[in-house]
Design a protein around this nucleic acid. Structure first.
Lengths: 403, 403
DNA sequence: GATTTTTATCCCGATTACAAATTAATTAGG
DNA sequence: CCTAATTAATTTGTAATCGGGATAAAAATC
């Protein structure tokens, strides 16, 4: 815990106000006061400072007062200044890289999909791809790289936040790769590296299903099994600031050899089940393996039904274990494996219900969200933005600065 | 996150100073300044206020300056005022209740062991036992109940902190029992109810193995399998403020019927293995089951060796799963099951090492601490004390006030 | 146009932290 | 024995914060 001084106090309240404005989109000063419980004086001072910094703008239209009383001095609505900053968010997966450019509000200005196989690449090759995509996408948005404040990359695997090192990931060759530092030097733009699960958790919190929920668990079912925990509005990190990973969870005790969740429920584990035929191999190559299998399942080919069911069952148990630890009101599932449909989901739900301990059973909801890749990239952008919002309890740590 | 004002700022810094004094036992103002990075002025003001409130006292002896320079005005050492408050801590287990009375420093003034079977008692019967013990122990300390500021009870099972309700526990009949409110009314003293695992975690943090470690995981192996997570110096709680429980963790996916950790590794699961003989039954009745079995094991009777080994293996996996989530540098094991000795520990260590993911393997230490029941009660007392220290980020929530 | 109502701001006092100067309590040295 | 040096702690002064109440501003209503 840091030591408190006036500066910190101001930072806290300033962030509070800015976050309130962001959440509501358009809000008057009085209403900010109602929500934050800060005095009108303080809010005036802080909003004046925010206006001074051009982080917000006033809009005299759209004063919708709640009660019929429509007299008196009209409220001045405050909004984020969309053009206060531009950031790039990118999601890197084994089958492609997805970019978005957003403004300060998180509105997508341009997006780009680069369907390319990314697997155990050397750092500089990945950097080439990323740099290329960033430049292209920024151009598409009618901007130059100089207009971009921060770039945030969402990668699968285990990321050490703060230092921006990728501890281990399918997309990169080697371990402990200083991706953030490398990219920030390469691009000349401050760069943040975040785990894909945390990025999408942020996206859900800002734009998605968890907008009014400050405590939830997010499980991403992709090539690797990611985990993001939002605790009291902040991304929860362990003691070492490593991103969380679900795939390593041990599922079983009987046999001496390790049986991890990833061995049952990762994309690869499900798809490899039946020594994939040629067409499936092709689909997998381009990241459409799961959709392909879903079609097969729908056509009555239940060669994969057992694998999907096993995976669902294991996931349900793993998620119940998590729910027992974090007791979240909400569990969100995302990721490409959801394309398997109810062959995965129904066993998952069933085993989750069965495994969940009594007091939580009624109050923990699972939500399934089949979002597109753009949402992940947007989540990465949100990670970058929340950094700019200047939260005093640094949630992601500073972006790697340009050296 | 709360909104910040000067009051909060002061509360934070005041807590910081008080906590620094507690940790060091005896410390001068300058040294507090070095550690907290607060200005000398602020520290003077805060310590003056603490002196004014009689929470600390000055001691002019024992000025050991670090470098050889021994000139100048000598430092005035500050210490907690031991007699600023007295609290009672109690640990309730199935085989007995243990009480301590401590002063403001956490020094034990009196302790009392009440070996009595506590199993699914109605609330008022448990309250009788607790009230009796508290009164006795307080008397032994040469005090009256009026001298006691807070009573803290550490109970096994799941506790809803804040409200002080016991959601489910082997010691109490029924679920969702408002133990804190009931006891505080009964005793006329503010009462806190905390899970036994959290209490002993606090004890480890204040007095034990984790004194200079703000991030660790504690696993208590007793009648029930408890879990305490210290995160950044605070007890971590899920979104619903429920205490954590390890026994419900699912260990395996294969068979349809649920296989929870408690079914493998709880005291009962281990001891029931071979339809306990008469002497073991007797030992279990009085809470010495594990020690008894250890003797049996040492005598070469390995009827329980398999059960112990199975339990250890399962625990190792469960703990590795936790370590994957919280990434603590330290995992502390406590509880009566440790009496089983290496028949439990060695398989535990082995499976832990095997299950732990690579990057954590070298940096996560398991420590085994065979502490006595008094330490648990002292931990409960520490929970009560930390409330009095007035941490602004309320770690345990207010004690149930007297109505 | 005067009144009412609501919003935003300005002024003031209380509290805080910090920096610099001041006082206090020692030891070292002449 | 007295003075200078040294370190510790407090006092004084400055800048910052928040909050409360008075004040100005802007519109609707009478």
């Amino acid at each position: 815990m840091k030591t408190a001084d006036p500066e910190l106090m101001r930072a806290i309240n300033r962030f509070h106000v800015l976050d309130t404005i962001r959440r509501s989109g358009s809000i008057s000063r009085v209403e900010i006061g109602e929500r934050t419980q800060l005095s009108a004086t303080t809010i005036s001072a802080i909003t004046a400072s925010l206006l001074d910094d051009s982080l917000i703008v006033t809009r005299h239209e759209g004063d919708l007062r709640r009660d019929n009383a429509n007299r008196g001095r009209p409220r001045v609505m405050l909004t984020l200044n969309a053009s206060a900053a531009r950031v790039v968010g990118a999601k890197i997966t084994s089958s492609g890289i997805f970019f978005v450019v957003t403004d300060f509000e998180g509105v997508v200005l341009a997006h780009l999909s680069v369907p390319v196989r990314v697997s155990a690449l050397p750092l500089d090759m990945l950097a080439d791809l990323v740099e290329d995509g960033v430049r292209r996408c920024v151009l598409d948005a009618g901007l130059g790289l100089a207009d971009v404040t921060t770039v945030a990359l969402a990668v699968p695997g285990i990321v050490e936040h703060g230092s921006g090192r990728v501890r281990s990931s399918t997309i990169l060759q080697g371990n402990d790769v200083p991706l953030a530092a490398f990219m920030s030097k390469r691009l000349g733009v401050a760069t943040i590296v975040e785990s894909d699960a945390n990025a999408i958790a942020k996206a859900q919190h800002w734009f998605g299903q968890a907008r009014q929920c400050d405590d939830f668990v997010l499980v991403s079912l992709e090539d690797s099994l990611g985990l993001g925990v939002m605790h009291d509005g902040q991304i929860f990190r362990g003691a070492r600031e490593l991103s969380l990973d679900l795939g390593h969870m041990m599922m079983g005790v009987s046999n001496a050899q390790s049986l991890r969740l990833a061995d049952i429920a990762s994309e690869k584990a499900i798809l490899d089940e039946e020594n994939a035929d040629l067409r499936l191999r092709e689909a997998m190559r381009v990241g459409r393996g799961m959709s392909h299998v879903r079609r097969l399942l729908e056509e009555g080919n239940d060669g994969f039904a057992a694998a999907a069911s096993r995976a669902g069952e294991a996931l349900g148990i793993a998620i119940a274990n998590l729910a027992g630890l974090f007791a979240p009101p909400l569990v969100i599932l995302v990721g490409s494996s959801l394309a398997l449909g109810r062959d995965l989901i129904e066993p998952l739900q069933a085993s989750f219900e069965r495994a969940l301990t009594e007091p939580l059973r009624a109050v923990t909801n699972i939500v399934i969200d089949e979002i597109g890749d753009e949402a992940w990239a947007r989540g990465a952008a949100a990670v970058a933005l929340s950094e700019l919002y200047g939260a005093p309890w640094s949630t992601t740590g500073p972006a790697a600065r340009i050296t």
